[in-house]
Design a protein around this nucleic acid. Structure first.
Length: 425
RNA sequence: GUGGUCGUAGCUCAGUUGGCAGAGCGCCGGGAUGUGGCCCCGGAGGUCGCGGGUUCGAGCCCCGUCGGUCACCCCA
C-alpha cells in the first residue's frame, strides 16, 4: 500500500504497463512503425538523457517545460544532464552530430519526463511516438507529416478528434507582429485575466491561447499573426492548407493556436480529442522549426515534426471504445497427469514448429489443469494420461466448440500443425 | 507549486451511536476411478497506508504524515 511497509512502488506519476494492456501498446507501436515506414521514415534511438543545453537552447528558456519541469541531475563526472522532456530536441542534436543526408526522415518512440503534478492524462513519465523531417522547407513535407498523424489516429479507430492548424510566421514577419500585438495588449491590459495582466509582455502570443474568458473577450479585436505573415510564410501556409484539402483532411483553422515550445516557425498544428473530458485533450501536436538546427550548432536546416502521446491517444481510444486489442491466446494447452515429462517434450516440439503453446506445471490435478486450459483461451487441450503415454499418443479435446474428442499419435498431431500456427485435427 | 477528495484481502468495495475484521470476484483444493466453463463445499490470503493522541476499548473520533486520485497551471 505505502512505503511505510517498506515495499517500494512505482514513483509518483509513473506507471507499469502489464498484460493485457501492454498488448495494446505493442499494437500501437507496431502500427505506427508500419505506417511511418511506408512514409519513408527510419527509426532513431537517442539517449533518454542529454547535455542539459540541448533542451535549454532547443526548447527555450522561457517555456514552462524547460523552466520548471525538467528532471535535471549532475552525474558522477560533474556533467549537467536532463531527462528528455520531449522528443524533437534530441533528434535534432543527433542530426547535428551525425549529419546524415537530407532530407532526413526519423521516427521515434520514447518516454518523456516532466516534473509535474500528475492527473488524468498527465504523468511524470509519459510516452510519445513521433517523426521529424530535417532538411526540407517544402510545404509538401508539412502536408505529409500532418497526413501521417491524421492517418495514424484514424487507424486507431478514432473519429472524434480535431486537427487545428496555424502559422507562427518566421523571423521575417513575427517580430514586427509580436510588437504590434504587445501594443494592442498594452491598450487593454486591465481587461486581461489576472495572470496575464502581469505577464503579457513576456510572451504576448500566449495571451491569445489563454482559455480565460477575460483574455478571450479582451483580445477579440486583436491583430492575428495569420494576417501579418510575410509573403513567403503566407504562400507556404496556403500551400499546406491546399495539400491537406487535397488529401481530404479536415482542418480547423485556429488563429490562436500557440504551442508550448519556443522553436516553432510557420506551420504549427495540434490534434485534440473531443472524446476526452477536461483540459487534457491534446493527443498530438507539432510544427515546423526552421531555426532549431542552427540553435543546436548545425548548419541552417529547416525541420518539421510531431509527437503523439501514447497514454493520451489510448485514453481517447478508451473513450471512443476503439482499438480494443487483446493478447494472443495459445493454440493449445497441454494437460499432463503422468508427471510432466511428456508435457515438457510435447510443448517443446510444438513450439519448435512455431506454435504458441502453454501447459500447467507442478503436477496439479487434472481438474485444475483443465481449468487452466480453459482460462488460457486455447481452442484445444492436449491430454496426456497413462493410456496416451503408453501408446505414444495424445487426446485432443475441444474447449470452445462441441466436438467429439479424438486420440491420435504424437507424430500425427505434429504432422497436423498447419501453416497458420493452429492445431488441425 | 496551490486546492478538493479517497486510503480496509490480489481486485471492487461493505463495516451500525467506538465493542471479536467481512462480502463478491480472483487464487488453491475437493465434489465416487481420466476432463474445463455453470453449480456446491472447503482453504489460503489483512500491521484496516504510516506515526502519534483521546478512550476500559479505535477500521470508525482528533492531529500529523505518506500515497492514490481529480482540478488549477502547463502540456502529450
Amino acid at each position: 500500500m505505502s512505503e511505510e511497509h517498506g515495499t517500494p512502488r512505482a514513483p509518483t506519476g509513473t506507471h507499469d504497463v502489464l498484460p493485457p494492456e501492454s498488448a495494446r501498446w505493442e499494437a500501437f507501436l507496431a502500427g505506427f512503425a508500419s505506417l511511418a515506414g511506408r512514409y519513408g521514415f527510419g527509426m532513431v534511438h537517442t539517449p533518454m538523457f542529454e547535455d542539459i543545453r540541448v533542451f535549454h537552447r532547443g526548447i527555450g528558456e522561457t517555456s514552462e517545460v524547460v523552466g520548471k519541469e525538467m528532471y535535471e541531475f549532475t552525474d558522477r563526472g560533474g556533467r549537467h544532464l536532463a531527462l528528455r522532456p520531449e522528443g524533437t530536441a534530441s533528434i535534432v542534436r543527433a542530426f547535428v552530430q551525425h549529419r546524415p543526408p537530407t532530407p532526413w526522415r526519423a521516427w521515434y518512440a520514447t518516454p518523456s519526463f516532466r516534473y509535474e503534478r500528475p492527473q488524468a492524462g498527465r504523468f511524470r513519465q509519459h510516452h510519445q511516438v513521433g517523426v521529424e523531417v530535417l532538411g526540407s522547407d517544402d510545404p509538401d513535407v508539412d502536408v505529409e507529416v500532418i497526413v501521417l498523424a491524421q492517418r495514424f489516429f484514424e487507424s486507431l479507430g478514432l473519429n472524434r478528434f480535431t486537427l487545428s492548424v496555424n502559422s507562427m510566421g518566421d523571423p521575417a514577419c513575427r517580430p514586427a507582429y509580436v510588437e504590434s500585438l504587445r501594443g494592442f495588449l498594452e491598450g487593454c491590459a486591465s481587461d486581461l485575466c489576472a495572470e496575464h495582466q502581469e505577464r503579457y509582455a513576456e510572451n504576448p502570443l500566449r495571451v491569445l491561447d489563454c482559455k480565460k474568458e477575460a483574455c478571450r473577450s479582451a483580445t477579440e479585436g486583436a491583430p492575428m499573426l495569420i494576417g501579418a505573415l510575410c509573403e513567403e510564410c503566407r504562400s507556404h501556409h496556403d500551400r499546406v492548407l491546399e495539400g491537406l484539402a487535397l488529401a481530404g483532411v479536415e482542418v480547423h483553422a485556429n488563429d490562436r493556436l500557440v504551442r508550448g515550445f519556443d522553436y516553432y516557425t510557420r506551420t504549427t498544428f495540434e490534434f485534440s480529442s473531443e472524446a476526452l473530458e477536461g483540459a487534457h485533450n491534446a493527443i498530438g501536436g507539432g510544427g515546423r522549426y526552421d531555426g532549431l538546427v542552427e540553435l543546436l550548432g548545425g548548419p541552417p536546416t529547416p525541420g518539421i515534426g510531431f509527437g503523439i502521446g501514447i497514454e493520451r491517444a489510448l485514453l481517447a481510444c478508451d473513450a471512443e471504445g476503439s482499438f480494443d486489442v487483446t493478447p494472443p491466446t495459445p493454440a493449445a494447452f497441454v494437460v499432463d497427469v503422468t508427471g510432466g515429462e511428456a508435457a515438457r517434450d510435447l510443448v517443446f516440439r510444438l513450439r519448435e514448429k512455431g506454435l504458441f503453446v502453454e501447459r500447467a506445471y507442478g503436477g496439479r490435478s487434472m481438474k485444475s489443469q483443465f481449468k487452466a486450459a480453459d482460462r488460457s483461451g486455447a481452442p484445444v487441450a492436449l491430454l496426456i494420461g497413462n493410456d496416451e503415454l503408453a501408446s505414444g499418443s495424445v487426446t485432443i479435446r475441444a474447449l470452445r466448440e462441441a466436438r467429439e474428442q479424438v486420440t491420435q499419435t504424437v507424430e500425427a498431431l505434429l504432422d497436423g500443425v498447419d501453416k497458420t500456427g493452429a492445431i488441425s485435427w
